[in-house]
């Protein structure tokens, strides 16, 4: 009799864990995602319309049109990981905001929309005023979380109108780290492998970053992301981007400059 009770309890525990595990990875459904999109916009009168489901290595997204851009909702977590606001691009030719004001605006938006932004070790990896010619300019701010010298997938991008300070686009990715952060391949070894991908290159400069990337669907890989520039050949810039598995040394991508 006791044995039956124990077996029954074990079955119950297994069943509960299976159900909860399945629940954790199950898609949230379009209707719930739509509510999240509406909440994110903080504008109940805006019509949010489902457009498509998009699958990236990073995960699956429900994409909604808002009439003024798009909202990407993570189909598993319900978190808004991307938003664009077309009307914010209007009148972006004049630069009225100085860099300090623009960065403060971008940071405030990141803190509002990205859960735990202030608590993570987010490094500002880029802050630029980018010109798009007649289409105006935008301030672009990129943060990446750094852990033990490794750039994690946790990133925030805020692009804003330099005249009005309105947010043009937002990206906010938040993931648990699921791969080891200690590389077996050293930086020098990685640079040597990268140079080998461009036979005859006379290297003028190179950067190498340890970065956790989604090189396959839902799978993280610790990589060396290398940008290598060489002297031109036949009036064409040499080098490009090379991504190397930091554990195995396997070359995952070679992407020469155009």
């Amino acid at each position: 009799m006791k044995r039956i009770h124990i077996v029954a309890m074990l079955c119950l525990v297994v069943a509960v864990s299976v159900v909860s595990a399945a629940g954790a990875s199950a898609p949230i459904g379009v209707d719930t995602a739509k509510e999240r999109a509406q909440d994110f916009l903080n504008a109940p009168d805006v019509t949010v319309q489902y457009q498509k489901t998009e699958r990236l290595n990073l995960g699956e997204y429900y994409v909604f049109g808002t009439g003024d851009g798009q909202i990407y909702v993570n189909a598993r977590t319900g978190v808004i990981e991307r938003a664009t606001f077309d009307s914010a691009r209007k009148d972006c030719r004049d630069v009225r905001l100085d860099r300090a004001a623009a960065e403060a605006t971008a940071r405030a938006y990141a803190e509002e929309k990205y859960s735990g932004f202030a608590k993570k070790s987010m490094q500002l990896t880029r802050s630029n005023l980018v010109s798009h010619g007649d289409a105006g300019s935008e301030y672009s701010y990129i943060w990446r979380e750094e852990s033990s010298g490794v750039l994690t997938p946790n990133t925030v991008v805020v692009n804003l109108n330099p005249s009005t300070g309105e947010i043009v686009s937002y990206i906010g990715i938040q993931r648990e780290i699921e791969c080891p952060l200690e590389p077996k391949l050293s930086r020098d070894e990685a640079l040597k492998i990268a140079a080998g991908q461009f036979p005859g290159i006379r290297v003028t400069s190179a950067t190498a970053d340890l970065s956790v990337e989604y090189t396959r669907p839902d799978a993280q890989t610790l990589t060396w992301v290398i940008t290598m520039r060489g002297e031109p050949e036949d009036h064409v810039l040499q080098g490009g981007l090379v991504v190397i598995d930091a554990q195995t040394g396997e070359v995952l991508m070679v992407s020469p400059y155009l």
Binding site: L56, N57, L58, R82, T84, I142, R144, L151, P153, T155, V157, S169, I171, I173, S211, E213, Y214, T215, T223, V225, L241, V243, M253
Partner: peptide
Amino acid sequence: DDCYLHWPFG
């Protein structure tokens, strides 16, 4: 922005 989300990030 579509490209930012493809590996490698950026």
